[in-house]
Amino acid sequence: MARKILLTALSVLALAVLCCSAVAADGARLKLATTTSLQDTGLLDLVKEKFDEKYNVSLDVVSGGTGIAIQYGERGDVDALLVHDKERELKFIKDGHGLERRCIAYNYFYIIGPKDDPAGIKDMNASQAFAVIMEKGKANANKVKFVSRGDNSGTHSREKQLWKKAGLNYSQVNSSGPWYIDAGQGMGATLNLANEKQGYTLTDMSTFMAYQGNLTLVPLIEGGSDLLNVYVAIAVNPAKHPGVNCTLANQFIDFLVSNEGQDLIAGYGKEKFGRALFSPARGNCTLIGCSDGECAAPTAASCAAA
């Protein structure tokens, strides 16, 4: 009896190893680190489908905040990045980790909050609104709260910029009382938390659209250059990280900036959400603050390792 069990178990294990070796013998794979918003909205699933088919490769998407995505890039663990935090992108390239920026798509951040808007921020500009939320929150944390991503993501990074713009010191803001809630989670989970607490939060438009069905919070401030959200692709520099697949990364970026890729982005979400979640960068370079070279142009940098 025991011998039989042992034998079955052993053969199952042997089978498992066979399965696994089959997986190991796979074709080319492109590893892409991306911000959660592009993944969670489903856009990248569509892009993957088309790209995989066209180039007969497998696009492997690892999603996290912009902070962790850039770290993966700095360690050479991925071949390309899709992120949205200009300052850190420029630093990433300056430090030699990335080749060039390519602006792919954009939309806007929203400041959302309870329908009755207890802080009264509707139609203010973003930094003004932040200052008011803090003031009212400190006065009565039961009425006015703010929920932060707190995860070093691109959205979190934008939030910090807005506090700064309002003339406030972020480290003082986030320790100034119970009105400020540090979620330390992705956008989706942060939206759910803000909804439970009936607080204000900063969100990218696309994730908000995708989660809207479960939320009672509404957008109070949208649009304006302060809230512009530009998604950028960068190939990891093979001179710095010899293990990366730069050729494939450039192919992917070229695919995204091509008319085919830009059309995919422009059309995404119309069916499901009634409107597009992202606007293509094509034709809007100046508006979104990308230079002509950075915007919707094929990659120029060579993949030759140093």
């Binding site: 199952v12 294990l13 042997a14 089978l15 498992a16 190893v17 399965c19 696994c20 997986v23």
Partner: peptide
């Protein structure tokens, strides 16, 4: 899930 965990157990 099964084959990854079985392989690691093995």
């Amino acid at each position: 899930s099964l084959y990854i965990s079985l392989s690691s157990a093995f």
